[in-house]
Design a protein around this nucleic acid. Sequence first.
DNA 1: TGTTTATATGAATATCAATCATATCGAGCT
DNA 2: AGCTCGATATGATTGATATTCATATAAACA
Lengths: 311, 311
Amino acid sequence: MNINHIELRHLRLLQAVTEAGGLTAAAERLHLTQSAVSHQLKALEDALGLQLIERATRPLGLTAAGRRLLTLAHAALPQVDSALRDLAKLKDGDAGELRIAVECHTCYDWLMPAMDSYRDVWPGVELDLLGGFQADPVGLLLDGRADLVITSETVPRAGIAYAPLFGFEMLALLTPDHPLAAKKWLLPADFAGHTLITYPVPEDRLDLIRRVLAPAGIKPARREAQLTVAILQLVASRRGLAALPAWAVAPYLERGYIAARRIGKHGLWAELHVAVREADAARAYVADFIETVKRDSFARLPGIRPAIIAP
Amino acid sequence: MNINHIELRHLRLLQAVTEAGGLTAAAERLHLTQSAVSHQLKALEDALGLQLIERATRPLGLTAAGRRLLTLAHAALPQVDSALRDLAKLKDGDAGELRIAVECHTCYDWLMPAMDSYRDVWPGVELDLLGGFQADPVGLLLDGRADLVITSETVPRAGIAYAPLFGFEMLALLTPDHPLAAKKWLLPADFAGHTLITYPVPEDRLDLIRRVLAPAGIKPARREAQLTVAILQLVASRRGLAALPAWAVAPYLERGYIAARRIGKHGLWAELHVAVREADAARAYVADFIETVKRDSFARLPGIRPAIIAP
DNA sequence: TGTTTATATGAATATCAATCATATCGAGCT
DNA sequence: AGCTCGATATGATTGATATTCATATAAACA
């Protein structure tokens, strides 16, 4: 490869590697194998005749050359994205309506800021957030009461297209002085005899119960709370255990009056997807909403990873 | 091809086509066949779902989409070229980056002029001064946030190389009519009962305290000031004593409203060293920076001597 | 010192870009 | 109209190279 054959792909690669903090993590983000990333990075370094990243240090650092190229990436890639958005607007028009239904309570945390940055770019699109609990949110798409649903399910349905957002870890919450806090991770049996504090949704919508406790035959008592802070409050005052997404609890962990533990050795991971009508999937303002949410989430939320399950 | 697979190649193509005024001419410029240009343009248009050039007209014109993409090309390609030029310089070794962290406040006095003369010789090297107090400046080297540190310590660390700059004398400052001014040199006990005016750094970074007062069990009250002139001001108005490098006070001694005395019979001597990553030590522009600073200092600073302690 | 996790690498494969050969198109001409 | 010429388009093939797979190697952890 020649120095003049630098491509946007290489800039995207370098950006992903530095943002993800490693080749393997970057590979996931780019939907490539680790090998591809390694090869491509090496090809780039060979072409330039310069090292771009310090292999020895951890967390992996950039060389002067790497920093220069990253500066270019930061300058050029947003320009490209902006141009592509303009082209998309030329193609499909720049106005529309997005009525959004959200299945998970904690999603509002990141959805609101994502919507804000989306509004900056697509001022002509009317955003509406549907409130209240929905038994069958994807059904709302089919009978035209919503245009976009954020859900953890991906059951195939005629006329519905799914796009993956990200995977996240559910953490068990307890007080720092709780007997279970001594363990590095919790097992299903650990939940027996404790009250489980949850949002007011049916059991089959709670990953902890559906995927961990129910299979182990454990049915803890439940207590419901509407708001995230209320759940945290109840846990802190020792009324029981809870399980929330890692990103939602991160800000509270620092204070130290609450602690989080993995659920199972490798953690309990869940995923979020976007569902839209197939007819809408190709619309520029819809596709870009999904992109915006994804980009925003990866930049903002700690401890998330690309979704694994194919949509 | 997907819309996200836009590459610089496509921007270069569009630019060539518009500048050359046709596909055939553009092909020549790009050292491609006319067929390749046609294929690539079509692939690009298909990916975007938009026409980019008006085929019918002659001389061939751009569509709105084409103009938007050409705008992007005009913005992005020069940035890329500029980055590539910088990288080429980095490669040849006549360019680089020196992010400099300085441990001692007074060092700025001589560092600035030294940097000025260095810049004349190495215009391709980007000089950056890291601001703020650093708890572990040499650590900045290891995690890649600095490239060169000016420090008084030389604790050996893996991957770090030290080079001596010079030794200098710390002088105690007082008013000419101060009772202690009668002495030729001051002893630790002389500081008892006086306020010590210092830069805002921890005690163990102050040679006077660490090497003279603390061993003698003397803990004077401290008062902090940010700037050298502020310290002198406070001394002159009899708020306490201070200790500064000889070179830093020399210009003020002449005025006569402040006096300086040795600390101990033979004076309190300290040394300054440069720390760099071993990997960087051999680079010409790094080695020459150290040489320049040294030469400049010996030429400019009164009362300094070569460093004695082996690095 | 084993065990896990991250990165590197050679060979095989898959993907995509460039070429060759040829078709199509449009403008100017008689 | 029919013809010609220069430019662009297109299908099939070749060539290049990005990606993967299967490992090896290296670093971190306990």
